[in-house]
Amino acid sequence: MKKSLLVIAIASIILVLIAKLVGGSGLVLTGLEKAWSTAVQSFLMLVVSFMVIGQLHVLLTKEKLDKWLGKYSGIKGILISALAGGFFPGGPYIYYPFARTLADKGMPFYILIAFLFGKNIYDFSRIPMEASLVDPKVALIRLLITLLIPIISGLLAKRLFEHRSVEDDLAREGE
């Protein structure tokens, strides 16, 4: 985590400097105001979602997860995971920590990929917004066309990275 924090801090400083050069202090302040507003709006949700993460941590033992994966591995696991992603509420500051908890518990890489692509592509709570703000026909066509993306991504990840784990990746990156 320390390395991630360092990377985030350096990237933030660089972007703040760019914003200062491009638009002066005003643009920097606008960016910081946006960040502050998101932080304030999402604080309660963050607290509650980490309560869920903590409860899941003690509930999902390795044995339970192995049993579940034995039952729902392969294509069945990909389908369920992609749909679970689609129904999972909240923004990236909620579902990434949640997915990381599952990864730490030993959830296979391809199931995580299906979950994340399912969340990004389906996000069922976003569809009414897409239909009303963009266009209902476009939203329907977009959903139908992209319907298979989370499944294909899960299958591709299973084929290409069957034995990969997020923990190994992070260890290699020095986390």
């Binding site: 914003a19 960040a35 502050w36």
Partner: peptide, 9 residues
């Protein structure tokens, strides 16, 4: 902070 800066830039 990073997301906020990306958004305004």
């Amino acid at each position: 902070i990073l997301a906020g800066m990306i958004e305004v830039l």
